[in-house]
Design a protein around this nucleic acid. Structure first.
Lengths: 205, 205
DNA sequence: TGTACATCAGTGAACGCGCGTTCACTGATGTAC
DNA sequence: TGTACATCAGTGAACGCGCGTTCACTGATGTAC
């Protein structure tokens, strides 16, 4: 990595930690540059202002998350040709991934942005919106495939069901941080897995 | 209401709006007192410092939420003697309640506190933790009653299931605010209702 | 019923500190001829 | 191969503004005797 982009990455890393722990406004450039071991002006070489930092943080988060989901669902599909089995495997892999994070899932930048939205401009809102709709599209494709191969045992809208994946993760993170019990997020994902199984799996009578 | 406590309530109201929209740190006392139409020193008559405001905000939120749930589950129990039916009715009432909020659920103070926890002291963390564990206890009692009357069709931990109620609401709020679609939270609650139904209801074969 | 005092619910002015941002500059590396 | 210039990745000092907090004061209401 070139000299400049390595510093930029370091800035984003320390900023992300702080934003997830204190919120965006309380994260001062002063403390970021102290942790990243540069000067304040060094920061402004990489980002024109603090809003540009927010945008970069969200965009990077979306990229990382997308790659992670691609990887996860891809591996699940390799493990089973059946769309339902692949989804169930994917949910299990996801739960394990979250479970293995030291100290629990660190939190979602999208959620912090949502709860501080009056601080940001239209660009940031749009990036957030696109991210969440992207997750919906991804899981919707998964559920469409399942619904073609299996009957569904209750009347549910597949878009809502797709949203439930992100929803349960976001909610799980909030719960786990509130209680101080890192495993909650993974447990919630496993419950969603149970729901998906009951919704689609043929019933053994 | 006495003169003083009415002002105090007004401070909490405008502070809550702002905290849910911008986060705690970005909510200045200056803007609070402007909205509440008092002076800065008036604020400090009611709260010894900004942290005391945070504590009051969270405590009030918990009280309001508790009362709301008590009311809701109580009404549901009046409508059916059967614990499963009562729970399903309760979920429906909850979804309707959220759906009827103009502009969607305004957000949960507990979630904002979780995503800004480094700003607050031990008292605030403890209040948050107690709130979430209180929700768990409440819903656990509901599920215990159901589990005594009905078989459960998948192996799930009832504490995890109890957490799922709060989790789905918290997650739904994040999703609905990110997309800008207020109805998402209610939809997620209805999906959880579908899950509970499938988990416990006898299967018509 | 009148008076003295206490409490309640604030006001107004001042404080110092930290914040985001700007600006002129710089030393190291890359590129053209 | 050497020189001139451009770009990259920053540095250091200064700025003004808004923030949370303090402090001495005040006018209205409540209470004891």
């Amino acid at each position: 990595m070139a000299r400049g982009s390595e510093t930029r990455k370091r800035i984003l890393d320390v900023a992300q930690d702080s934003v997830l722990a204190k919120g965006f406004d309380a994260t001062s450039i002063e403390e970021i540059v102290a942790s990243a071991e540069i000067t304040k002006s060094g920061f402004f070489y990489h980002f024109r202002d603090k809003n540009a930092l927010a945008r970069a943080l969200i965009e990077r988060h979306i990229e990382v998350e997308d790659e992670l989901f691609d990887d996860l669902l891809g591996r699940a599909r390799e493990l089973s040709d059946d769309p339902l089995q692949a989804a169930l495997i994917g949910m299990k892999l996801l739960a394990e991934l979250i479970e293995d994070m030291p100290g629990g899932h660190p939190g979602c930048i999208v959620a912090t942005a949502v709860y501080q939205d009056r601080l940001f401009d239209r660009d940031v809102h749009e990036a957030n919106r696109r991210a969440v709709l992207g997750w919906r599209r991804r899981f919707r494709a998964m559920f469409d495939e399942i619904a073609q191969a299996y009957p569904i045992h209750d009347e549910v809208d597949l878009d809502h069901l797709s949203d439930m994946v992100s929803s349960v993760i976001e909610g799980g993170i909030v719960m786990s941080r509130a209680i101080g019990e890192p495993r909650i997020t993974a447990q919630q994902v496993m419950l969603l897995r149970s729901y998906i199984k009951m919704l689609f799996a043929p019933r053994i009578q």
